[in-house]
Computed example of a mutant assay.
Amino acid sequence: MNLIEDWLQYWPQLLSGLWVSLQLTAVILLVGLPAGLVLALGANAENRALRMTSIVVVEIGRGTPALVVLQLVYFGLPTVGTTFDSFTASVIALGLTTAAYTSEIIRGGLQAVPEPEVEAADALGLSRVDTLRFVVIPQGIRIAIPPLVGFSIMIFQATSLTYTIAMPELMSQAYSIGSTTFHYLSILTLAGMLYAAVTIPASWMATRIEKRLAPHRTPVAAH
């Protein structure tokens, strides 16, 4: 059976796996990005205990492979009485990884906000919380958007790791078909094409976003 025949026969099953991968990515980002913002703010906090705690959490999250975190959540936590299904375990594990990595991206964006604008907010009598809310966070997030989009693409690709805990995403479906038909080359090629069909347009979008936002940062650099 050739590539086209495999595609015609198995594309509905592969597409269902792709849909699961996209859903999983969306939920992971909904959990991980806000958590990353919290960790970024914590790492910049004046309170030393909060700052050190946030930094330690980030370093552990960045230093531990996502696959290890996934296995710990799915197989390790049940040994202490906490059990999760594969979708929940995937969201928790990859959400933690997302939070750790994106916190550094967001932190860099927050630190890139021009100091004169922060000083202007202080001169207007804004509290520290209001300065963060209305000045620092909106501009910092805008600066961080391009790398965050790029990282989101990586998380979509990382969902392929969840096949190890029986998550029926794209890679899991491909392996299931391959183990039945032994057409691993054609099936995995088709799976790779589906990944590329998502990641390549997303990469183009990230590049366009970065170019559109660049003019807004140029005047700041000039000053």
Score class of each variant (00 low, 15 high):
residue 85 D to Y: 09
residue 112 A to N: 05
residue 135 V to L: 01
residue 93 A to C: 08
residue 35 A to P: 01
residue 131 T to A: 14
residue 70 L to Y: 04
residue 127 S to P: 09
residue 135 V to R: 03
residue 79 T to G: 00
residue 39 L to P: 10
residue 147 P to I: 05
residue 46 E to D: 12
residue 116 P to E: 05
residue 32 G to F: 09
residue 134 F to N: 04
residue 117 E to Q: 15
residue 44 N to V: 02
residue 118 V to G: 00
residue 34 P to S: 11
residue 96 L to C: 13
residue 148 L to Q: 03
residue 39 L to D: 10
residue 47 N to G: 12
residue 146 P to S: 09
residue 142 R to I: 08
residue 128 R to I: 12
residue 77 L to M: 10
residue 97 T to L: 05
residue 134 F to H: 15
residue 82 T to P: 00
residue 123 A to M: 08
residue 142 R to Y: 02
residue 149 V to N: 00
residue 148 L to A: 06
residue 76 G to Y: 06
residue 139 Q to F: 03
residue 90 S to N: 04
residue 104 E to C: 11
residue 46 E to K: 14
residue 44 N to G: 15
residue 121 A to E: 00
residue 64 T to A: 05
residue 115 E to D: 14
residue 122 D to I: 00
residue 149 V to G: 02
residue 110 L to R: 09
residue 37 L to M: 12
residue 67 L to T: 08
residue 121 A to P: 02
residue 87 F to M: 07
residue 140 G to C: 06
residue 80 V to Y: 00
residue 49 A to K: 12
residue 128 R to A: 15
residue 109 G to F: 10
residue 92 I to L: 13
residue 103 S to E: 04
residue 114 P to F: 12
residue 32 G to Y: 11
residue 62 R to F: 03
residue 109 G to V: 06
residue 109 G to D: 07
residue 141 I to D: 07
residue 104 E to L: 15
residue 86 S to T: 14
residue 41 L to I: 14
residue 37 L to P: 02
residue 124 L to F: 14
residue 120 A to Q: 00
residue 41 L to S: 11
residue 98 T to H: 04
residue 145 I to M: 10
residue 58 V to K: 02
residue 143 I to H: 13
residue 69 V to N: 12
residue 115 E to G: 02
residue 31 V to I: 15
residue 118 V to I: 14
